[in-house]
Simulated scan of single mutants.
Amino acid sequence: MGLPSEDQIISALDQTGFLLEQRVAQVFAKKGWAPSVGWPFRDKETGKSREIDVFISNGEFVGDLNLAAFFINTHIIVECKNTQNPFVVVGSKDHGPSLAIDDFCDSEFDPLVMGFEKDPYASTPGKLRFHDIPGWPQKETARGNQLLRMHQQSGTWKADNANVHDSIQYPMAKAIQSVRDEGFDYYASDRWREDDPLSPSFAFVYPIVVTAGPVFTVLVDAQGSTVSQVPWAQVVRQLDDVNLSGTFFFEIVSFTELERYIDFRIEQFLSGLYRRLSENLRFADPDWLLANLGRPHAEAFFEHWRKVVAARRAGTIT
């Protein structure tokens, strides 16, 4: 029978989806990110190892660590679907699913939630209006709560959600939860180390399904349904499982639009976020908070943080 030709090898690989994963990784690398293909994580439900097709994790300080700084973690989870058949996101024009700030932004250490006397119910994402920054996932994106696949059968297009939950939505939610669980709780006593930078920290998780084919939305209201081909769309799901519960979202993106998605959704938002944090570094300064907002409720932790910041400024820790 002989060996396969180069074209036959490429054709065979194209059918498996492995080449799509590599192409997706290359798009992110072109934009300056450092992607990993086949990133493993442990399934807490089964104890087995699973894989994220393409995973990117990046941490960056905003500000001067020796004066006042925020730390931003960005995690990008990509699942690749190598099909030319369209995906359809179905939702409502009138009252589509919504996201809370906490569904996208994890406040790993937010000084404002320590409950200061003059502003006891504040949070940094709320105070600085993260949700108004261009690129925030609730803005300018069609969204729904149902994802279906189109396929041809006997010459007719059919739509169904068979295996969509088991093969896309549930595994994506597990990957999101696993990445978020890898975060840290600065308020836990075992993190109170003298050499810890202890900067206000926020993490953002971008869950993305990249498909080789097109993406459509169907938005429904009392007058009927509107069908649109879109570069990407958002799916918001509520899960209530013994091992997995909460609000999860992901965005399904056509591969041909991936570079534009990265520009619009990820880099535009992060650029705006870094700019807004740079303009508000006082919220990362314990002395400013004490002078302007009074004593915090979590006084012991606040004094530990203040001590660490003072040591950094004095040059006794780096």
Results as ranks from 00 to 15, higher is better:
Pro4Lys: 12
Pro4Asp: 06
Ser5Asn: 06
Ser11Lys: 15
Asp14Met: 15
Glu21His: 02
Val27Pro: 00
Val27Ile: 15
Ala29Cys: 02
Ala29Arg: 14
Lys31Trp: 02
Gly32Tyr: 09
Gly38His: 02
Pro40Val: 04
Pro40Phe: 05
Phe41Met: 02
Glu45Lys: 14
Glu45Val: 10
Gly47Lys: 07
Asp53Met: 01
Val54Trp: 00
Ile56Tyr: 00
Asn58Pro: 00
Val62Asn: 03
Asn66Ala: 14
Leu67Lys: 15
Ala69Val: 07
Phe71Thr: 00
Phe71Asp: 00
Lys81Asp: 02
Asn85Cys: 04
Val88Lys: 10
Ser92His: 07
Asp94Gln: 14
Ile101Gly: 02
Asp110Gly: 07
Val113Trp: 04
Val113Glu: 07
Met114His: 11
Asp119Pro: 00
Pro120Gly: 06
Ala122Val: 08
Thr124Ala: 06
Arg129Gln: 14
Arg129Ile: 03
Asp132Gly: 00
Ala142Glu: 10
Arg143Thr: 09
Arg143Leu: 08
Gly144Lys: 08
Leu148Val: 13
Arg149Pro: 00
Arg149Lys: 12
Gln152Cys: 10
Lys158Thr: 08
Ala159Lys: 12
Asn161Lys: 14
Ala162Asp: 08
Val164Arg: 05
Ser167Ile: 01
Met172Ile: 13
Ser178His: 08
Ser178Cys: 04
Gly183Leu: 05
Gly183Arg: 08
Ser189Pro: 01
Arg191Met: 12
Glu194Lys: 14
Glu194Leu: 15
Val205Met: 01
Val209Cys: 07
Gly213Lys: 12
Phe216Asp: 03
Thr217Met: 03
Leu219Thr: 11
Ala222Phe: 10
Ala222Asp: 14
Ala222Gln: 14
Pro231Lys: 09
Val235Lys: 09
Val236Tyr: 05
Gln238Cys: 06
Asp240Pro: 01
Asn243Ala: 10
Thr247Pro: 01
Glu251Trp: 07
Glu251Arg: 15
Glu259His: 04
Phe269Ala: 06
Ser278Pro: 01
Glu279Met: 11
Asn280Pro: 04
Arg282Glu: 13
Pro286Glu: 10
Leu289Ala: 07
Ala291Met: 10
Gly315Met: 05
